[in-house]
Design a binder for these strands. Structure first.
Lengths: 100, 100
DNA sequence: TATAAACGTTTAAACTATTAAACATTTAAA
DNA sequence: TTTAAATGTTTAATAGTTTAAACGTTTATA
């Protein structure tokens, strides 16, 4: 595979970890259905506490899967899948190029 | 996003979990460099115990990332990335198709 | 058939991640 | 300038993961 492909794979660890959680996937699903939601709106749709939702939102935001816009006291979250998809595409290209 | 894309994402959880571990990535790297290795050979290259290596091999095998061939008492492990890559490709296609 | 080699599995301990309660911060409104 | 609303952060408990030791299984060989 070579070091280059390994580094791509290593770089994907936080993304894989962010995506491999059903709570976070539920949040993602909510945001595909609603376009934009506040923390309280997300909390009211799930069985998690608000701090737990906040925690998961932070992880998703750190991976660039969500974007957030603050208006007054409220924070509006929405999806930003492009970065994650691009990273996966890069990984696939590298692995296919180097590992077959 | 719709249920279809969510199901694709849900289906990827075990794959993401399998790949988001540095020990397992190290095993993958070893197998790209060596084509085929036994459990003891893998163990001698890492700082893990043999049962731990065996454990990680099992997880990787369950996700179709490795294939195994037994010859006598020895088990020869080698990479089989195709399944995982295909699954990621499917996910990307579905998300791009349904979520933009 | 007895013995050794190559593994896998079970189990208990250490480590890490997840959760909710309590607290802190920031902004808007009275 | 209080007060209330929306949210983030810290912390302690719980749940899940990872590890190595001990044990079991299978296969080859003496």
């Amino acid at each position: 595979m070579g070091e280059q492909a390994l580094e791509k794979l290593r770089a994907c660890i936080p993304l894989f970890q962010a995506l491999s959680d059903t709570c976070r996937q539920d949040i993602i699903l909510l945001l595909t259905k609603n376009d934009t939601l506040t923390v309280n709106e997300i909390t009211s749709e799930l069985t998690l506490s608000r701090p737990a939702v906040s925690h998961h939102l932070k992880i998703l935001r750190e991976q660039g899967i969500l974007k957030m816009e603050q208006q007054g006291t409220q924070r509006y979250y929405s999806l930003a899948f492009e970065n994650a998809i691009d990273q996966l595409k890069q990984l696939i290209i590298t692995v296919e190029d180097r590992c077959y």
